[in-house]
Design a protein around this nucleic acid. Structure first.
Length: 287
DNA sequence: CCCACGACCTGTGGGC
DNA sequence: TGCCCACAGGTCGTGG
């Protein structure tokens, strides 16, 4: 799932273990994830210190002391394990079969001791790369990305401009990372429900008042999800790892046939397929 | 350029 | 129980 809130939760969970830490040993168990890992991957990482861990859209960025940045995208099932713990649980549980542990980073944190961070990815839709830090913004991964939805550039005006001439559904438009970067299938359904906008509307037909509401609701749902994720990081004790904390926060996603959660609505959540992906919505209060 | 669709890969859950 | 199909957080390449 990892959409923006999950990636941000992973970042916050990893940061205390990575920032300032040196990578003393890196184990690479296969040559490729979604794409081949870059040449000399292990060699270029070993001995490097992680200066800081940031996020752009659904990418994690570990800036290294070597002048390169480790870029990681989690795809659908990519997960980092810090020792036995996983920061950022996902909606659909997936095993962490060790046969899908593709990379292990052994760390020497600045405050002493040692750490082990493993990357596990059953479907291998995730990928990693090493890019010169000073060349990041021009790299194809990032060049075409739209604004961060929680940043200053995500505005009703900007979104309206992106929707001009967009003869595709608002659902598909919001999944387009060039329009806004970080939303995925779950939070698009959630945001459209909260904004009372039907997912099949053509993007170019949204009125300014609707776009304004949409911006507000995208920001609200992401902020709430990040807060929920962050709160789980504190009680990250062994037993609770599997609690799907996002699950009971979703108002419509994966809730086909349930009553619409809008207290003023008597509708029922429906599931349709748009451009190959499930959309959940209430046909009564979303227009 | 725009848009829809299939492909990538593995696992899981439901129906029969 | 077993088998088969549908579906799962994402994106990329192709072809209309």
């Amino acid at each position: 799932m990892p959409e923006l809130p999950e990636v941000e939760t992973v970042r916050r969970g990893l940061a205390p273990h990575l920032e300032g830490a040196r990578l003393v040993r890196v184990v690479q168990n296969r040559a490729d994830l979604r794409f081949p890992l870059p040449p000399d991957f292990v060699h270029r990482l070993t001995g490097a210190t992680v200066i800081r861990l940031t996020r752009r859209a659904k990418y994690l960025l570990a800036e290294l002391s070597t002048g390169e940045t480790l870029v990681a995208h989690l795809g659908m099932t990519g997960r980092f394990m810090v020792g036995e713990r996983q920061p950022g649980a996902f909606h659909h549980p997936a095993g962490d079969d060790p046969k899908h542990t593709h990379l292990v980073f052994e760390t020497a944190p600045p405050d002493g001791g040692g750490g082990r961070i493993a990357y596990n990815d059953a479907r291998r839709f995730g990928y990693m790369d090493l890019i010169r830090t000073d060349a990041l913004i021009n790299h194809p991964y990032f060049k075409g990305l739209g604004p961060e939805p929680l940043g200053p550039d995500f505005t009703p005006k900007g979104l309206a401009s992106a929707f001009t001439g967009k003869r595709t559904s608002i659902k598909a438009a919001l999944l387009d990372q060039r329009v806004v970067a970080g939303l995925g299938n779950i939070y698009v359904s959630e945001a459209l429900h909260r904004a009372h906008i039907g997912p099949e509307r053509l993007a170019e037909t949204l009125k300014p008042s609707e776009i304004k509401r949409l911006v507000t609701e995208v920001q609200a749902v992401l902020t709430e999800a990040i807060a929920a994720g962050g709160s789980t990081l504190q009680d990250f004790r062994a037993a609770d790892g599997e609690l799907g904390y996002f699950q009971h926060r979703f108002r419509v996603y994966d809730r086909e046939d349930e009553p619409c959660p809008n207290p003023k609505c008597t509708g029922v959540i429906r599931r349709i397929v748009q451009t190959g992906r499930s959309t959940f919505f209430c046909a009564k209060c979303q227009r």
